[in-house]
């Protein structure tokens, strides 16, 4: 079991994430990418600036990862988890977060990936400042 959690201010490199997750025991690698979309609540987005309380964000993500992994049955089938979250200004189409899980079979990887994302949205101290055609605001 190995994990990698990073808050980064440059583009997420999916190839490196995949290489981190890949190993001969894993029959499944699930990678979720969160992407800045063009419209939010009917408003056309120009860009989003992400801000993080980095030290706490890493602690919280680590906690989430351990809790969600424990909740799974057959959690010994999970091999690696990789989470990278961007900070700084992102344009439409750029990846803001990547969550990757490798496991023996696909079911656990899909489930863990989805559950981790749900929890990150609830408690990890990261904020976004949206710039749309109608103005700017903290989401």
């Amino acid at each position: 079991m190995k994990n990698e959690i990073k808050i980064i201010n440059h583009s997420i490199e999916i190839v490196k994430v995949r290489e981190f997750l890949r190993n001969n025991r894993s029959g499944a690698i699930v990678i979720f990418e969160g992407v800045v979309r063009e419209f939010n609540k009917g408003e056309k987005i120009k860009n989003i600036t992400y801000e993080a309380y980095e030290a706490m964000a890493i602690k919280e993500i680590t906690k989430i990862l351990n809790e969600q992994r424990k909740k799974l049955t057959n959690n010994n089938e999970i091999h690696s988890i990789c989470i990278h979250h961007r900070v700084g200004k992102l344009n439409v189409g750029e990846t803001s977060i990547i969550i990757g899980v490798s496991s023996e079979h696909r079911e656990q990887a899909f489930l863990l990936c989805s559950n981790i994302m749900d929890q990150i949205k609830i408690s990890v101290p990261i904020w976004k400042f949206e710039m749309s055609e109608n103005g700017t605001y903290w989401v």
Binding site: G34, Y50, A52, Y53, A55, M56, A57, K59, H85, S96, I97, M117, I120, K121, I122, S123, V124, P125, I126, W127, K128, W138, V139
Partner: peptide, 30 residues
């Protein structure tokens, strides 16, 4: 509120010299 990077809901929590208190508005990661 977070005390030394951990959420605290306990108003009676003891805060010590050089502790770091963070004011955390609603989060929006992802």
């Amino acid at each position: 509120f977070a005390v030394n990077q951990t959420y605290s809901k306990n108003d009676n929590q003891e805060i010590n010299d050089l502790d770091e208190i963070a004011l955390i508005p609603p989060v929006a990661g992802g």
